[in-house]
Amino acid sequence: MRKLAVLCVGALGLILLTGCGDDNAAPARDRTPTIVTGPGPAAPALVPPGLHEQAPPKREDNSGAEPTSTRKEVVTGSVEITADAPVTAAGTIIDQVRAAGGRVDSRTEQPGTDDTEPSATLVVRLPADKTDAFIAGLGGVGQITRVTTNRDDVTMHWEDLDARIKALQASVDRLRGLIAGATTTSDLIAAEQALSSRQGELDSLTAQKRRLDDQVALSTLTIDVTTDHKNSGDDPDNFWDGIVSGWNSLVDWLQDAMVFSGKAIPWLGFLAVVAAVLWGIVRLVRRRKPTPGAGESAPEPVSSASDGAETSAGGKSADGGKGDDQAEQP
């Protein structure tokens, strides 16, 4: 009997354990489908936080990249290059400009002389997107000593011109429609006057926009090509070159002195003539002016003459007195 009771209890325990295992397993199988095939709102809870927040900014960046591509810039700059033969280097630069699809607006070349060194100056227009590559390619022509570039953003100005042109174009179209449907002469004249004013303003804005488009499409570069003073070869390197350089400088000085003498001879002759004229005028003035000695001796003869006259008069009176006495004596 005890064995039977133990067997019954063991069988009952196994039954209970099996039932509990089924109850625990069944919810686990039920929960697994719930996670996978559950309703839509529960799915986002499994996504790591921040993914939904990062996605919209990427779409905004992609959409915001379009205004950057339509940015309008006017590119200007200057480049300074040193080369052994500036004129030849300028010709090479012009070939590179034409190969890049640009043009040359200004060209100034100065061959070397005894007093000046050779140089060349170019003003070129290049496609804006090829400017940087063109400047980098100038290193094969000579040594680049200075590069300056400036990018001026004219997007707002370009958009303003474009909007005003569209508005004026619409106004011109409406005025043309009014002219076509005008019934009175006064209405026709007023519409034509308004159309003339609007058309003139439209043409001016269109020309400004065309010029701005040209400045945006083509950059402007000023290129100066000169020689390298350090490697010009004018300074002597040894004793014999110093002697030759000194002799050449002496010959140059003598030539300059002869040229100066030739220029000075006409001036010396002119100064000599002027000095002779002035000396003649001074001598003439001196001759006409009386001397102090001549002025004092002039009155003396007059006084002596008057004294002689008085003496003679006294003598006559004395003689006359004597005559009277002699006349009285007889």
Rank of each mutant, 00 (worst) to 15 (best):
V6S: 04
V9H: 09
G13P: 02
L14I: 15
T32L: 11
T34N: 08
P41F: 11
A42E: 15
E53A: 03
Q54W: 06
R59Y: 02
D61E: 10
A65Q: 03
S69I: 08
G77A: 11
E80P: 00
T82E: 04
P86W: 12
A89E: 11
A90T: 08
Q96R: 11
Q96P: 13
A100K: 15
G102A: 14
V104F: 07
V104S: 03
T113Y: 01
T116I: 10
T121Y: 13
V123G: 03
L126H: 10
I135P: 10
G140H: 13
Q143Y: 01
T145R: 00
T149G: 14
D153E: 04
L161V: 04
L161Q: 08
D162N: 00
G177R: 11
L178Y: 05
I179L: 15
D187M: 11
A190I: 11
A207L: 12
Q215V: 03
Q215Y: 04
V216H: 05
S219L: 14
I223L: 11
T227Y: 02
H229D: 02
K230R: 05
S232N: 06
P236R: 00
W240I: 08
I243V: 14
D252C: 02
Q255E: 14
M258V: 10
W267E: 12
L268S: 04
L268R: 06
L271V: 10
A276R: 10
L278F: 14
I281F: 07
V282P: 05
V282C: 09
R283L: 14
R288N: 03
K289E: 15
G293Y: 00
A294W: 08
A309T: 15
D325Y: 00
D325W: 02
A327F: 01
E328R: 02
